[in-house]
Every structure is written in structure tokens, then in C-alpha cells.
Design a protein around this nucleic acid. Sequence first.
DNA 1: AGGTATTTCATACTTTGGTATGAGGCATTT
DNA 2: AAATGCCTCATACCAAAGTATGAAATACCT
Lengths: 160, 160
Amino acid sequence: MVSFFHKYKSILLYALSLVIILIALQVMQYKLILLDHSYELYMLFIALLFTGLGIWLALKLMKPKTQIETVIVEKTVYEKVWTEEELQAIEVEKQKLGLSTRELEVLQLMAQGLSNQEIADQLFLSVPTVKTHTSNLFFKLDVKRRTQAIEKARQLKIIE
Amino acid sequence: MVSFFHKYKSILLYALSLVIILIALQVMQYKLILLDHSYELYMLFIALLFTGLGIWLALKLMKPKTQIETVIVEKTVYEKVWTEEELQAIEVEKQKLGLSTRELEVLQLMAQGLSNQEIADQLFLSVPTVKTHTSNLFFKLDVKRRTQAIEKARQLKIIE
DNA sequence: AGGTATTTCATACTTTGGTATGAGGCATTT
DNA sequence: AAATGCCTCATACCAAAGTATGAAATACCT
């Protein structure tokens, strides 16, 4: 019963408004407006009033539809100025990771979108070797995929 | 001038309807309805009529909102680095790509390091659907892998 | 009413990515 | 000399990514 009211709250409110306004209009009609014989203005007023009410009702009922589309997050990133403390914290984290020279090289190329094969070619390595590096890299960065590794490395300012 | 009409077509149509209906009502008033002294029914009719008109108007005006063409306005504001011309050039490139809403959403999540499965879960899609989106995405971005797509999207400032 | 674009899903297939394990060479450190 | 850490490579196996193709529903526009 409560949920019923909740669900159709807008419509019930509309019906209520309808009744109230109609009564009000009838009162007004006999007391004020029609005395001036300004029937056209009177009608215009009513029309606009109920149009507004219709718009309001539509907006209320439409709400669920607009919700679906708001999955996307809007981000406005300003140029961040890093304080000494933050930079030091990042440095510490980088140190803790203990990435080797080779691993950093691989990470660089990985972030540029190269495949393991392409990285191997670039660094004159075999693909298994590159895989070993990437695998160790993921372990040290505590991630599961190269895309996550790239994201994390970016946050730690290891790359770019 | 044409686009002006197109943009405010709904409102103009509303105004037109308003006028026509008011005139019609006045004619009706003198000829039909009020002869029965059914003033209340008459008012109710008007109220419902214009409520409907209001709903229609609201729906028309809401349309652009549900489309959400460029919801992802991820304008990263590196204030001092990017000039107006550069930003505009980037915008033009973005437009040329013609990425759809869904594709942009997938791109976003992809850049956060999510797997196709995780993207599917997040957006309530099947994995094949996500694959379709990524595949189209790669084609439009002219890349071969998701890591490249992320890199390119970053350069075009589509993401972060 | 028909055309277009988007979104969705499926199936089948190939390629790439990632894990596990082992192993040898080469420095540096203890 | 032995231990440690790094770099290298290999094999094998499984998971994820990516391609190709078809299809169907929706929505929008002319």
C-alpha cells in the first residue's frame, strides 16, 4: 500500500492539483476574472497553467529513463602541482616495488601499446623472456593484466 | 534560420497548438458545451487537454537529454600547456572518429584496466557485445590492441 | 515506409597474453 | 666459494583478446 502510493505519487499529486486548480478557477471565474470580460486571457492562463502541470508530470515520470544513461563519469582534471611530500611518497613506492632495469624498459614499451612480440624485437629478446619480465612486473605491481600495469605505472609516475 | 526552426520546432508547434485550441474552445464554448451548463466537464476537458500538451512538449524537449551525444566531456584542463587552437584541433579529431556513446564507455573502462568480462559485468552486457565494441573501437582508432587504443585515446584526450 | 546507425548477442576461430616451471649464465655480495 | 639477484630462454598449458560473420531489435531521419 505504501509502495503503491510511492509509485504513483506523481500521478496522485497531479490529480490533486487538477482538482484544486479547477475549483480555484471556478471561484476565480465568478469573482474576479470574468468581470473584466477578459475571457481570452483567462483561457490563456488556464492553458499555460495546465501545460506547466503536464510538463512537470512528464518530468517526474521520465526520471527513470534518464537514470540509465548516467553511467559515465565526468572528470575535470586540472594540472596537478605535486608537493614535495607527494613526490617523495611516490619515490618511496617506486623503490618498494624494486623494478629492475629490464622490467622498466619492458613496462615503457608495453605502455606504448606494443605486443610481447614487438617488445622482443625491439629489445632483441625472445618472446618467452618478455613474458617472464611482464609476469614478474605484474607480480611486483600487484596487477593481473598489462592494461592495469599501465594504469598503475601512470599513477606512480613511473611512465610519462 | 532553418536550424533555428529545427531547434525550436517543438516550442513553435506548441505555441501553434495553443492558439488553435484556444480558438476552438471559444467556438465550442458558445455553440456546444456550455449549453448543457456542464462547466465542470468543460474545464476538466481543457485541463486534461493542456496537460497532455504539456507532457508532449516535455517529451519533445527531453529528447536531446536522453541522446547524450557527448556526455563524456573529459576536457582535461592542463591550463597553461594547451592553447585554444590545439584543443580545437583535438576536438575536430575526436569528432572525425565518430565514436558512439557505448564505445566511449567501453573505452573508459578499458583504460582503467578492466578485462572484457569485467566491462561486460559493469555495463550489464555480454562478453561478445563488449568484443564487438572494442573491435569497432580499434578500427575507428586505427589500432590493433587495447593498449594502443588506450595510448591513442590519451593523446586525443578522450580519456583522462 | 525505407534507410541508416546503434546496440545487442551469438558462434566459431585465431592470436596474443599470462602462468608455471625449470634451467643456465653472469655479475655482485657475503 | 656459496648465495643472491638479474637476465635469458624454453616448454607446456590455460585464459583472455581479437576477428569474422550473421542476425535482430531499436531508434532516428527523410
